[in-house]
């Protein structure tokens, strides 16, 4: 039992280390991963400016922009990552190793969270410098709590998606592409989800980024309370439940999918 736990911790840290080294060695992210999302979200700040909206809406957008980094990381570096691992021939080696594939996925998540947090913080910092966004720093402890819960449930969802994407071939890339804009909409990356109406916003709450972002906005922008979907406490409770469900589901799913993949030979097929 303990031996097995140590094995999986080592595998997890080993996979996370790939991301740490990548971040250090592949420096493309500095100009592009930080500036690029900032450029993307700037469009919405300028639209709010043209509509003469108050600066708190700029904070809405910047916080949404930093959350986009995580969502993109989930899509491209978690969900479709196993697809890339298959393309490079790593996937069969993950499966013939004694460690659980979940430990590798958690390793990816840990590495991804670290790398993406650097990017997300840079976006917020640049947002403060360029757009002078107002932030209520006293709300930081609450924001950190909301943020951590969001990440746990979001990466749990990412692990689930990884398993599902494992069954797909080239569609994995397209699925990731396809899941970008709908989630931008339903998670309210550029506007409060309350605007979507109660029922749509309730359904959208299944995506951890939606409630996570809403609670982050509540804690860091007190003026945003009227635009909040649910109270901070309820949102935190739901995020806790989502974290447990998604992580549990990802463990169940990965076992099932591995069996299907072994039966159908999907672990070994490369180009499709």
């Amino acid at each position: 039992m303990i031996k097995n736990l140590i094995l999986n911790i080592r595998a997890c840290l080993g996979r996370a280390q790939v991301r740490f080294i990548g971040l250090k060695r592949d420096l493309y992210w500095i100009p592009f991963d930080v500036l690029l999302p900032l450029l993307g979200v700037s469009t919405f700040i300028f639209i709010y400016k043209s509509l003469k909206m108050p600066p708190i809406t700029y904070t809405f957008v910047i916080l949404g922009g930093s959350m986009i980094s995580y969502w993109l990381n989930i899509l491209w570096s978690m969900a479709s990552q196993l697809y890339w691992e298959r393309m490079t021939g790593n996937l069969p080696l993950f499966f013939i190793a004694p460690c659980s594939i979940n430990s590798i996925l958690i390793g990816m998540a840990v590495g991804g969270i670290y790398a993406t947090s650097v990017r997300a913080l840079s976006i917020i910092l640049l947002g403060i410098i360029f757009f002078k966004i107002p932030i209520y720093w006293q709300g930081l402890p609450q924001a950190i709590l909301a943020f951590l819960l969001t990440l746990i449930s979001l990466y749990g969802l990412g692990m689930m998606l990884s398993s599902i994407f494992l069954l797909s071939g080239r569609e994995a890339w397209h699925l990731s592409n396809l899941l970008q804009e709908p989630i931008y909409l339903f998670s309210g990356f550029f506007f409060p989800i309350k605007t979507l109406g109660f029922w749509v916003a309730s359904l959208a709450s299944l995506i951890p980024a939606s409630l996570g972002l809403d609670s982050l906005r509540q804690s860091l922008i007190p003026e945003s309370k009227p635009f909040a979907f649910l109270s901070f406490e309820i949102e935190i409770t739901i995020l806790c439940i989502l974290s447990i469900i998604y992580i549990y589901m990802s463990f169940i799913l990965v076992k099932k999918i591995e069996k299907i993949a072994r039966r159908e030979g999907r672990l070994i097929t490369r180009w499709q």
């Binding site: 639209i47 396809l178 550029f190």
Partner: peptide, 17 residues
Amino acid sequence: IRPIFGVAIFYMVIYFA
């Protein structure tokens, strides 16, 4: 799907404002 949601995002941003 991408254009539909792209349009919807712009709409929601303007509608919110």
